[in-house]
Amino acid sequence: MSIQHFRVALIPFFAAFCLPVFAHPETLVKVKDAEDQLGARVGYIELDLNSGKILESFRPEERFPMMSTFKVLLCGAVLSRVDAGQEQLGRRIHYSQNDLVEYSPVTEKHLTDGMTVRELCSAAITMSDNTAANLLLTTIGGPKELTAFLHNMGDHVTRLDRWEPELNEAIPNDERDTTMPAAMATTLRKLLTGELLTLASRQQLIDWMEADKVAGPLLRSALPAGWFIADKSGAGERGSRGIIAALGPDGKPSRIVVIYTTGSQATMDERNRQIAEIGASLIKHW
C-alpha cells in the first residue's frame, strides 16, 4: 500500500482519535458579512469528516447552483462504474471539434489522439474542462443518470439537468442544476469515506481534487503551510461562485467545507476574496 493510499485508508482512524471539535460562531459572522459585502445569498456548511456531524452552517438547506462543483460527483459516478466493471479508466475516447464547448483548455489539445477516461476526469476536476465533463456525462448516460446515481446514494436534493455550459445559467428560483450545502457536503463525505467506492477509487477521487489547479484564489489562499486540501470550485452566471473541499491540518483532511453564493453584482475577484476570507476565519478558529 502506498503512503497516499495509507493516508486515505486511515482518515477515519486518525479522526477518531482527534480531540473533540467545537464550532466557532466567528466564522458564521464572516459568512454573514460576506453576504453584506456581496449583496447576495451565501450558503455555508462545515462537517466533521469522521462523524458527519454538522459543526457550523448557514442557509444549509437553500438551493444554490452547483456550477462546476458537480464534476466531482460526476467522476465519482464514473469511478463507481469502474468498480462495477462497467468502465475502464484506460479506455480512450475520441471526439471532434464539434464536441468542444466553451472553456476546454485540455480537451482542445487532444482532438487528434483523444483522451482516456482517467485523463478526462483529471481534466474535468483539476482544470474544470467543460468538454471533458460533457464527454464523461455521455459515458454514464447524461445528466439524468448522474441525478439517479445521487438518488441511489441517498441524495434526493442534488440534481443535474443540463450539460456544460448551460448548467451554469443560475436563474433565480430555478431548481435545475442545483444542490443544497448540506446535501453536497453529505454526498461528498460519502464519496470520500464511505463504502460506495473502493479504496482505490476513493484515493483516485481525492487525488484529482488535491491536484486542483484553478481554485488557488479561494480556500487555498488562506491555508497555512502543512495543511491538506482537496477541492473543486465552480463559477456561473449572475454572480455565482462555489467551492467544495476536504481539508485539515497535519497533512490530512478532517472536515468537509461547502460554500456557495449566487445573485451578486460583485466582480469575480471580490467573490473570490470573500470566500478566501471565510476560509481564513475557519482556519483561525479551527
Rank of each mutant, 00 (worst) to 15 (best):
D48A: 08
R238I: 08
N152T: 14
D83K: 04
S104L: 01
R176G: 06
T186S: 13
N134T: 05
L135Y: 03
G141Y: 05
H285P: 02
F64V: 04
M1Q: 01
M184Y: 09
N50D: 15
A123M: 03
V42K: 00
A276R: 13
A77N: 13
V106W: 07
R92V: 15
S80E: 11
L150T: 09
F17S: 08
H5F: 06
V31L: 11
I45S: 06
E145R: 13
G236K: 01
E119M: 06
K213E: 09
L167I: 13
G263T: 05
R271C: 08
E119Y: 03
Q204C: 14
L79N: 02
T131M: 05
L47P: 00
L135K: 05
Q97P: 14
I93C: 06
I54P: 15
R271D: 06
A245Q: 01
C75T: 10
L49F: 14
R202N: 06
M184I: 14
G239V: 01
A225T: 14
V101W: 06
L19I: 15
T112E: 15
A246I: 13
L79D: 01
H156Q: 13
L19G: 14
E164A: 00
R202W: 03
I140Q: 06
K232F: 00
G154T: 05
G239C: 03
M127K: 08
E56D: 12
L223W: 03
P253N: 08
S221Q: 13
A15K: 04
R7N: 10
S240K: 01
A280I: 14
D83C: 04
E119N: 08
A183R: 09
P217H: 10
S104W: 01
A132T: 02
L135H: 04
N134G: 03
I244Q: 01
M180G: 11
I45Q: 05
W163T: 10
L79K: 00
D207E: 14
E164S: 00
L167Y: 02
A148R: 15
E277A: 11
L192D: 01
A276I: 07
S201T: 08
D83N: 04
D207G: 14
P224K: 07
M115S: 04
R63G: 04
L218R: 02
L47W: 03
R92W: 09
I244N: 02
D99G: 06
Q86K: 12
P105Q: 06
P165S: 07
G226M: 07
E35S: 05
S201P: 03
P143N: 04
W227V: 02
P249Y: 05
D177T: 01
T267V: 09
G279Y: 03
S104R: 03
E56C: 08
D212S: 07
H285D: 07
R176N: 08
A225M: 15
I171G: 14
L10G: 08
V157P: 02
T139P: 04
N272M: 03
E108C: 07
R202E: 09
W163R: 11
A245L: 03
N152I: 09
A34L: 08
V82M: 06
M209I: 02
K252H: 14
A245N: 01
P65T: 04
A133C: 05
L38F: 08
W227G: 02
I278W: 02
K144Q: 13
H24C: 08
T187W: 04
Y260Q: 02
R241N: 04
T27E: 03
L136R: 00
G263K: 06
A183W: 08
A9S: 15
E145L: 09
L10V: 12
I206M: 14
E26V: 10
S264E: 04
M66K: 00
A280D: 14
N98E: 15
M115E: 03
N168C: 06
A132K: 00
Q204K: 10
M184E: 01
E166Q: 13
V214T: 09
N134V: 04
P224C: 05
H24L: 10
Q86W: 10
I283A: 08
A123P: 00
F14Q: 03
R241F: 02
L111M: 13
D207F: 10
S281R: 13
G279L: 04
R41N: 10
A123L: 03
R91G: 05
A124L: 04
A183V: 13
K252F: 10
K252S: 13
Q274I: 10
I229S: 03
L160S: 11
D207T: 13
T178R: 02
D269R: 11
G242D: 01
S201C: 07
L192K: 01
D174F: 03
Y95F: 14
G85E: 11
A9R: 09
E102P: 15
A245E: 00
A185C: 07
V21I: 07
H285M: 09
N152P: 04
C121H: 00
V157S: 12
I11M: 11
L89I: 07
S57D: 09
Q37V: 15
V214D: 02
G76W: 05
A215S: 09
L136G: 02
L55S: 06
G76E: 01
P60Q: 13
A185Y: 00
E35N: 03
A200L: 10
R241D: 02
V31C: 13
Q4D: 08
G248C: 02
L199C: 15
H285Q: 10
K213D: 03
G194T: 15
F6K: 13
Y95G: 03
L100D: 02
I45K: 01
R162D: 09
A148N: 15
T178E: 02
V82P: 01
L218C: 05
E237T: 11
A266E: 12
M67Y: 02
N152D: 15
I256S: 01
E108N: 10
R238K: 13
L167K: 02
L188E: 01
S57N: 09
S221I: 11
A245K: 00
D36Q: 04
I244W: 00
S68D: 00
K284N: 12
H151P: 04
V157R: 12
H156V: 11
Q204W: 06
T198Y: 07
D207Q: 13
N173R: 14
D177P: 01
K284R: 14
K144P: 11
A9N: 09
V82Y: 07
C121V: 04
E237M: 15
A133E: 00
H151V: 12
Q88E: 13
T179M: 01
I125R: 00
T139Y: 07
G154W: 04
A182R: 14
K30M: 12
E119L: 03
E61C: 08
E46W: 04
L218H: 03
P25M: 10
H110E: 07
S254M: 14
W227R: 00
I256L: 11
R162T: 08
D113R: 11
F149I: 10
R241S: 06
K190S: 14
S264R: 05
S221N: 12
T138W: 10
D129N: 01
Q86D: 13
Y95D: 01
T27V: 14
A9K: 12
Q274D: 04
A133V: 02
K30H: 07
H94F: 14
L137A: 06
A185V: 06
C75H: 00
K53N: 15
S80F: 13
V31K: 01
V8W: 08
G242Q: 02
V101S: 10
K252L: 10
R91Q: 07
S57E: 13
S254Y: 10
T187L: 08
T126F: 03
A280W: 11
P12K: 08
R162E: 05
A16Y: 08
P249Q: 09
G251M: 10
S122D: 15
C121M: 08
I11Q: 05
F64Y: 06
R176Y: 07
L167T: 08
G90T: 13
T262V: 08
A225L: 12
L74P: 01
V214I: 07
N272Y: 02
W163Q: 09
R255A: 04
I3Y: 13
N98K: 14
T27A: 06
R7V: 08
A183I: 10
T138G: 13
E195T: 12
K109C: 09
K53D: 10
D36W: 15
A235P: 00
Y95R: 01
H110F: 11
R189N: 11
V157A: 12
L219W: 04
K284S: 14
E164N: 00
K30Q: 09
A215V: 04
F70R: 02
G43N: 00
S264Q: 06
P217G: 09
F14D: 00
L47S: 06
I256F: 05
L38H: 07
G43T: 01
L199G: 15
Q274L: 15
V72Y: 01
R91T: 08
